[in-house]
Design a protein around this nucleic acid. Structure first.
Length: 423
RNA sequence: GGAGAGGUGGCAGAGCGGUUGAAUGCGGCGGUCUUGAAAACCGUUGAGGGUUUGUGCCCUCCGUGAGUUCGAAUCUCACCCUCUCCGCCA
């Protein structure tokens, strides 16, 4: 949600922002709508004041005086009823108009149309070289019996997979490795609910913008989360945090569910784009004045995790046309996947400034009891499926085996290499 | 799932259908007293919105929504949530 005061006083800020993001919103129409709505609020308030005044006199009246006052009040009520109804409609309309407004992008976010305008700002490591014919993660996974997407499709449909054998140990090893790093950096580990109410989806900005991307349980009015960001952010809905407790840092492990509507035919097979995957997400509640420092800390933490795994990756500064509407700025981490011969997104790190905080009413108070909205930011710490792909493809050898990255060895129960099973 | 109890301000806890935004206690803040602190005493202490910057006025909010009434925290209905007991269960 945007700052409505700012919107009224400086609509040109939003005019520019909407242009930057290639969005189409009629600002003038919304401003006029707001003015009309506020006029109606004043009128309703006035009539209510009159009603309250008359009400107070009522106990003192009797007989015909009383009869007259009552009939007077009935007339007022008739008018008030229709005005209140109209106001409610106007409010709902206005709120849904406002909900479509994006956050104001940071000055360091590059202006651009689409993914082609994202700016690579940093590269780590080098592309690994192989002196044999490499396989992609699907070939590796199937031949080593650690991935089965056919059975996944049979039981649940396309874009569902089974992880098997060493892949399962690898997932838990990754989780351990990542949680240990994050815990040492002051992130509180959380396992949140993955079914949430509509408010949590709206509050975090995933609705209404990406309505088709998420599963809804119609019978219970609940949504399956696409990321732990949703329950982590909503955890502090309506809270007022102590300034001295900020930044508050959480890392949440959850299964994530995405419908992937509209991505037909993209990344089919394997586990790059699946309806269900596990992920550890970092989430920070921050003071506005420290927000951008905390955000860089988040990016550094993300990079530390992937450097430990030894991947070659690049960081993209995402352009205004490609960031989500709640984001003021977003970095993507794209790792090199030899099997695809391409950099692919493994993680995403966003600062949403006060956008989610406004929607979910998350504030902090300083030592003088002044209250203001916190800033919220989130980053992938480890999307397990995609990280496994990167491990498989980067750590394969000429025999089609997969070595275990060194940092994961302590969590692998002695498994150092994944080899074909003897039948 | 069945039976019962309850949802009021930061917390605890009152509240005859009209002057209750809401008693009282605790906590918080300010002050008096004190070398300082505690105690005691006095005062103060919710959120959101509209209008206005004459800094006041006005509106809304007692789980949520609907209803009765001129008027609802108070009455009716539905829903949600919490607690206790029973059943079932990883």
């Amino acid at each position: 949600m945007i700052d409505i005061d700012l919107f009224r006083k400086n609509p040109e800020i939003f005019r520019e922002e909407i242009k930057k993001r290639n969005m189409k919103i009629n600002i003038d129409e919304d401003l006029e709508f707001d003015a009309a709505r506020r006029k109606l609020i004043s009128e309703v308030d006035e009539l209510r004041a009159l009603k309250n005044e008359n009400s107070k006199k009522m106990p003192k009246l009797s007989g015909s005086e009383r009869e007259l006052a009552i009939s007077e009040m009935k007339k007022i009520n008739e008018r008030l009823d229709s005005m209140e109804k109209e106001l409610q409609e106007k409010n709902e309309d206005f709120n849904s108009r406002l909900a479509n407004y994006p956050n104001i992008s940071h000055k360091t976010a590059p202006v651009g149309r689409d993914e082609n305008d994202n700016v690579p700002i940093f590269f780590y490591g080098n592309k690994p070289e192989f002196d044999f014919e490499i396989k992609n993660h699907i070939e590796l996974g199937k031949s080593l019996d650690i991935l089965d997407d056919e059975k996944g499709a049979q039981v649940s449909g396309a874009r569902f997979v089974y992880l098997k054998n060493e892949a399962v140990f690898l997932e838990f090893a990754l989780i351990n490795y990542v949680l240990n790093i994050l815990y040492s950096k002051g992130f509180s580990p959380v396992i949140p609910p993955v079914l949430v109410k509509e408010r949590a989806m709206y509050g975090t900005g995933f609705l209404p913008a990406e309505k088709n991307q998420y599963y809804k349980i119609e019978s219970d009015e609940l949504y399956l989360v696409g990321t732990a960001e949703v329950p982590l952010c909503s955890y502090h809905a309506d809270d007022i945090l102590e300034m001295n407790s900020l930044p508050v840092k959480y890392c949440g492990f959850s299964t994530c569910f995405r419908r992937e509507a509209g991505s037909y035919g993209k990344d089919m097979g394997g586990m790059f784009r699946v309806h269900q995957f596990d992920k550890i997400e970092m989430f920070i509640f921050s003071r506005p004045e420290n927000s951008w420092d905390d955000y860089e800390f988040l990016r550094e933490t993300l990079e530390e995790i992937f450097r430990g795994l030894g991947f070659h990756y690049r960081i993209l500064n995402m352009c205004t046309g490609d960031i989500g509407s709640p984001n003021a700025k977003k970095y993507d981490l794209e790792a090199w996947l030899p099997g695809q011969g391409a950099y692919r997104e493994l993680a995403s790190c966003s600062n949403d400034t006060d956008y989610q905080a406004r929607r979910l009413n998350i504030k902090y108070k300083d030592n003088d009891n002044n209250k203001d909205f916190v800033h919220t930011m989130n980053s992938t710490a480890c999307a397990v499926g995609r990280t496994l792909i990167a491990i498989y493809e980067n750590y394969q050898d000429s025999k089609g085996n997969i070595r275990i990255p060194e940092v994961l060895l302590p969590y692998m129960n002695g498994i150092e290499i994944i080899s074909a099973k003897k039948k």
